[in-house]
Design a protein around this nucleic acid. Structure first.
Lengths: 211, 211
DNA sequence: CGCCGGGAAACTAACGGTCGTTCGGACGAT
DNA sequence: ATCGTCCGAACGACCGTTAGTTTCCCGGCG
């Protein structure tokens, strides 16, 4: 089932999805900040380092942004929205069959974490460096994505297609598999499709059980 | 299969496993550092904050430790060794049956991440704040644990008990489920046994397939 | 064409504060 | 008297951010 058109497009050369509309120096700052935050964490990187990587001085950063935290916030929002959209579009192309729905959801979930691993890492570990209101804005998107997956699982159980006693635990397990892809991606050379196919299969096995 | 003796013991009140032999102020420092690192990350916490939480001044920390990084190193080593021992003992009590082996491994894996979630978090996100040689010492333990699980999966495939084409991907998926428990533990009130049982079941389903 | 004003974007310098760590001395128990 | 522990003070480096200035391009006008 490794088709060529299910995922939005071929892997882009950029660390950021096309959704990030910033251009010029602003874009450059976002990309370099992402690379550095992804490796060293938000608090492990200084504004001066981000600026140097972008070819400007630290003070010039503030002509494009209000603060270092805003840099993280923009990355987190872009990442979460891209992920949420990927899930929504996956569901849109699925039929009414729970197995098909979960297969496409997991494939999209894995696709995101393998295509934008640095962005996914930042989204998953640096959120509590955000102020409370920024954090809530991001978490709102996150909860929507969670609900998308949870709804499919619960409906599948109701229809008798899935057989798990605790839907949320199954959601957590399936979500975890994909999230962690962003941590090891690049160290081994699987293709996105190979991992997406395998994990979608795992998810179905997990939900359907040995019958 | 929620028995009372498979896991090493009842959940301890401490954030650190009994394996951490440090006592007095040293122990206090380790525990407070763990609590702070677990929430804010290594670079998000200052030595002065750790000292204040431990009831001493920053300068007094250096009568017990050589550096802030050593604090992280000791936590990382203790965490990885506790995890590795949990896996080894789980295998020791398992029979030759791959399903039994993977069940006990996953239960131990989940037990660790649910019992010491802060320690697990630090072990999983802060490792690259370590110097190269400290990092290698920790990764050596980590690779042993990985091999423990991978061996069981590969043997299970060879014996025909498991049916997965790429053992490493199955390992990554199963490992991920457990690791992420440390991230959400405490927000919902599952018992350790409930999660361990569910995830062990998921792992078996994932490996055995729908036959 | 040369000249000018304006605005964006970069620069240097510096602010107050915090960082990890060191030093020398004081205290209390052995 | 010695040792382990803690303290206050301080070190140099670096932090995020601001202020003021320079550079440069570009459109309008003589």
């Amino acid at each position: 089932m490794a088709n060529l058109e299910a995922a939005p497009a071929a892997p882009p050369p950029s660390l950021l999805p096309p959704r990030a509309t910033a251009d010029g120096t602003h874009r450059r700052l976002l990309e370099e900040a992402l690379a550095l935050f992804g490796q060293w964490g938000f608090n492990g990187v200084s504004v001066r380092e981000i600026a140097k990587a972008s070819g400007i001085r630290a003070s010039s950063v503030y002509g494009h942004l209000e603060s270092k935290e805003q840099l993280l916030f923009q990355l987190a929002i872009v990442g979460h929205e891209e992920h949420h959209d990927a899930l929504r579009h996956a569901l849109l192309e699925a039929g009414a069959e729970p197995v098909d729905q979960i297969t496409r959801l997991v494939r999209a979930h894995v696709w995101f974490h393998a295509t934008y691993p640095l962005l996914a890492r930042v989204c998953n570990r640096e959120l509590n460096a955000l102020g409370p209101e920024s954090q809530e804005r991001v978490m709102a998107v996150r909860h929507q994505s969670e609900q998308l997956i949870l709804d499919v699982i619960e409906r599948g159980i109701r229809l008798g297609a899935f057989d798990v006693p605790q839907p949320w635990l199954a959601y957590a397990a399936i979500g975890s598999m994909g999230i962690r892809v962003a941590e090891w991606w690049g160290q081994l050379d699987f293709s996105v499709d190979a991992v997406a196919d395998a994990y979608a299969d795992y998810a179905v096995r997990l939900l359907v059980g040995n019958r």
